[in-house]
Design a protein around this nucleic acid. Structure first.
Length: 486
RNA sequence: GGCCCCAUCGUCUAUCGGUUAGGACGGCACUCUUUCAAGGUGCAGAGAGGGGUUCAACUCCCCUUGGGGCUACCA
């Protein structure tokens, strides 16, 4: 039997919350591998736990993946829709003698487990129901007594060659006869996963290493379900992502959903790049990459075994890198919504002043780490009234009368510049500085505060151009009024 | 407790037996400069400990320690 020549991978989140950064990274590695080798990347929603699964979470997962640009190849599989197959698979194993009915109730099991713990013993199901005679099983089932189906774990050991860990082996004696079908007829995770992975023709299962201990159970199910394990995929267990304190990343570490980062003004390309470097390296010193470059460079040999700590500082730096390097045409559609959200402008306004807006963003993006930074810096170019930063005033407008005089002279000089472009303005103001016998900064800095209210901005002549002649001159008027009132 | 996984600067990592152990984030200093960023330069900063194997171990093996995961009729 030759296996399918096309590798098939899947990302299989359970819809019990938003798309987590750890899940996003798992999806990314699956996606990268599939794209790299010309395989297929599938998406399966594991919604067998009806109590915890929500449609809202499912939508959040779709949205998150779409935002990241991780597209899947076939129709989404909803695990809940495969209930009938899960049940017949369980029954097949029952008929084949690979599983048995267990009448122990959850409450009884719980009690025994606690008793074992009290005796400081490790609890393992004692197989008592495996000794119930078939006649009695039939009688109790017919009498309507509820039962689960347990897989009978064989003797020996279960091992596999993991793509990232190499060989991993579990003695079967440490694995109890685990439940595969609940008393309500719904499947337990391990059964649903294996049944679906076989049905979907999955050839490589790449997931978090918290699943390592599920893997021997799943391998046994493959062996029971597919003729000696003919459909057994390759496994690759990725390290976890931890928070700054070294513990498993969780809500108390702050933002953990990819949606959080989207709203914080992180670019999807930067998020992906950052996540890729958490547990993978292309080798050498390569760090800033586009998604396409990552596909080119991706190689499972570069996968790490060690858990990685999520460092938000590096994510921000990475975002700054992407902000500066991304094509302006790709950046614009991402900043426009942020401007709308901030109430600075509507998409229509921005479209009407397309070239100007483009230039402004190009000016601001170099000194921004997030989209929000850009919006924040852009405020003076949109509003009529500006907020003066007290620190900027304290520093640059220390001597109000002198500042006012110099600013007035600056305004007068600017008004004479025939062509509102950087070069003539600069020579005009440099000449003024010389006449007044002051350093350029003595003119530029107070002017910056007058124009933006801030002590931080792009080059002062770029600011003047971005603001435009009328607005610049008017804003100096406002500053003069304020200075003279002081 | 049992089983399993892991272990290079504070963090992400390079190294696939022979290197002054390299890069990046962060920190600090300097530089560029009209400010802030960006950029450039430099500084501090790592092979957990102990045994082996080998002419030679960060690298291979074992133990210890430390961290993590799993241990449900959750996924």
């Amino acid at each position: 039997m030759t296996a399918s020549p096309v590798p098939r991978l899947r990302f299989a989140p359970s819809p019990t919350g938003f798309l987590h950064v750890g899940g996003a990274r798992t999806a990314l590695f699956n996606w990268l591998y599939a794209r790299k080798v010309g395989g297929q990347f599938l998406l399966r929603i594991e919604d067998t736990d009806k109590a915890r699964s929500t449609d809202e979470s499912t939508r959040a997962i779709f949205e998150g993946l779409e935002w990241l640009g991780l597209s899947w190849d076939e129709e989404v599989v909803h695990q809940g829709a495969n209930l009938a197959r899960h049940q017949t698979d369980a029954l097949r194993m029952l008929d084949a003698g690979r599983a048995y009915r267990c009448f122990c109730t959850a409450a009884e099991l719980d009690e025994r487990r606690k008793a074992a713990e009290a005796r400081k013993e490790s609890f393992k199901y004692d197989r008592r129901c495996d000794r119930v005679t078939s006649d009695e099983v039939r009688r109790r089932v017919e009498a309507g007594e509820p039962s689960v189906i347990r897989f009978r774990v064989p003797d020996g050991a279960t091992a596999w060659t993991d793509m990232v860990h190499e060989r991993i082996e579990f003695p079967n004696k440490d694995i109890e006869d685990f439940v595969i079908l609940r008393s309500d007829g719904t499947p337990i995770y391990n059964l649903a996963v294996v049944s679906d992975d076989i049905a979907m023709g999955i050839t490589l299962v790449m997931r978090g290493d918290d699943h390592i201990s599920n893997t021997p159970k799943q391998i046994m199910l493959y062996e029971a379900l597919s003729r000696g394990g003919a459909d057994l995929p390759t496994f690759a267990h990725l390290p976890m992502i931890h928070g700054l304190d070294g513990k498993k990343l969780s809500k108390r570490h702050g933002a953990t959903a990819v949606g959080d980062y989207r709203h914080l003004g992180i670019l999807p390309g930067a998020m992906l790049n950052f996540l890729a470097l958490l547990g993978w390296s292309p080798g050498g010193d390569r760090e800033v990459m586009t998604l396409d470059e990552m596909v080119q460079l991706f190689n499972p040999d570069g996968l790490q075994k060690k858990a990685a700590i999520f460092d938000p500082k590096k994510l921000e730096w990475m975002n700054g890198q992407h902000l500066s390097r991304i094509d302006l045409d790709d950046l614009l559609p991402r900043v426009v919504p942020a401007f709308e959200r901030a109430g600075l402008a509507t998409a229509a306004d921005l479209a009407a002043r397309g070239a100007w807006f483009r230039g402004l963003i190009d000016l601001l993006r170099v000194r921004a780490r997030t989209l929000d930074d850009i919006v924040r810096q852009a405020s003076p170019y949109f509003r009529d009234e500006i907020d003066y930063d007290p620190e900027a005033i304290a520093k640059q407008w220390k001597d109000a009368p002198a500042t006012a005089d110099l600013l007035a002279a600056t305004q007068a000089r600017l008004a004479t510049v025939p062509d509102w472009t950087p070069e003539p303005m600069e020579s005009a103001l440099r000449a003024l500085a010389e006449e007044k016998g002051v350093a350029g900064g003595k003119i530029f800095q107070p002017l910056r505060v007058a124009l933006t209210g801030l002590s931080v901005s792009p080059g002062i002549f770029d600011v003047l151009v971005a603001l435009g002649r009328d607005r610049s001159l008017r804003r100096i008027d406002q500053a003069l009024r304020r200075l003279r009132a002081a």
